[in-house]
Amino acid sequence: MSELPDPVLLTIAACEIGFWVFVVGGLALRYVARMPRPSMIVFACVPLIDVVLLVAVGLDLAQGGDVEFAHRLAPIYLGCTIMFSRRLIAWADVRFAHRFADGPAPRKLAASGPERRRYEWADFGRWLGAVGIAVAITGLLGVTVADPEQREALVSGFGVLGTITVIWLLTGPIWYSFGRD
């Protein structure tokens, strides 16, 4: 018999789907149904998805679950949703407004130049914030619900964060600051 998928990984996938359901639902309420107040309530519920994931990971660790890839991914996912969700929602909002409410067409990001450099550095700054949040969440899980073995396994994922950070820095802000134009 095949092994069941990791419940934490399934929870991450469900949270990602839930995020987009809330975003599209909020935008549909705002622009299609012309109900701006209920749309704001839906958008205000988006952070609850992060709480669900944090609780799921915490419960799994507290029940003695083995730390797998998904346990190390969850804090990174949470950091990214906290740091990037506002921008993702704004990105989708402009497109919904254009499509359903005669809003202006989405503006294309410059391929190079000062505007692109600012964008790349701002995105990298968001990534650094996401890393900080991921480290804090990992630490919180490590001191609250994880046993010493789980804590060590959770922290072992920090190397991946460092690798991603270096690659992002080189292929994003550094590339657009010095490698283009």
Score class of each variant (00 low, 15 high):
G132K: 04
R95L: 04
F69Q: 09
A130Y: 01
L109C: 01
A122D: 14
A134N: 01
R37C: 00
R116E: 10
M40H: 12
L48F: 15
Y77E: 03
E115T: 07
S112K: 13
L61V: 05
W127D: 06
I12N: 00
W91N: 13
R117P: 01
R72Y: 05
R126I: 06
A28H: 09
H98F: 14
I167K: 07
L161C: 04
V51Y: 05
A90R: 08
F22D: 03
D181M: 11
A146Y: 04
V21S: 02
P104N: 09
S112Q: 15
R87E: 12
L128I: 12
Q63S: 13
M40S: 12
E115A: 15
A136W: 06
R107S: 10
G139T: 04
V135C: 02
E68T: 15
I89V: 15
W175E: 10
A110Y: 10
F22Y: 13
G25F: 07
P114G: 13
R34S: 10
L140E: 00
W168S: 13
G159C: 10
I76K: 01
G132Y: 00
T11M: 14
A136Q: 00
P104M: 05
P106R: 15
R72Q: 12
L27H: 02
V155K: 03
F84C: 07
L48G: 15
D123V: 09
G79P: 02
Q63G: 12
P7H: 03
P114N: 12
V135G: 00
C45I: 13
G25K: 02
L154D: 03
A28K: 02
A153Q: 10
E152F: 06
L29F: 09
G64C: 01
D181Y: 09
L48N: 08
M83L: 11
D66Q: 14
F84T: 00
P5H: 08
I76C: 03
C80K: 04
G26E: 07
A105R: 15
I82G: 00
G113V: 10
G125M: 04
A62L: 08
L88E: 08
L61H: 09
P106C: 10
A56Q: 10
H71L: 01
G18F: 04
P7K: 07
T81I: 06
R117E: 13
Y176S: 01
C80M: 15
V51A: 14
G157L: 05
F158N: 01
P173H: 00
D66A: 15
R116K: 14
L169A: 11
A97Y: 01
A74V: 00
S112L: 08
R118D: 14
P106F: 12
I164Y: 09
V24K: 02
V160A: 13
A153Y: 07
Y119W: 14
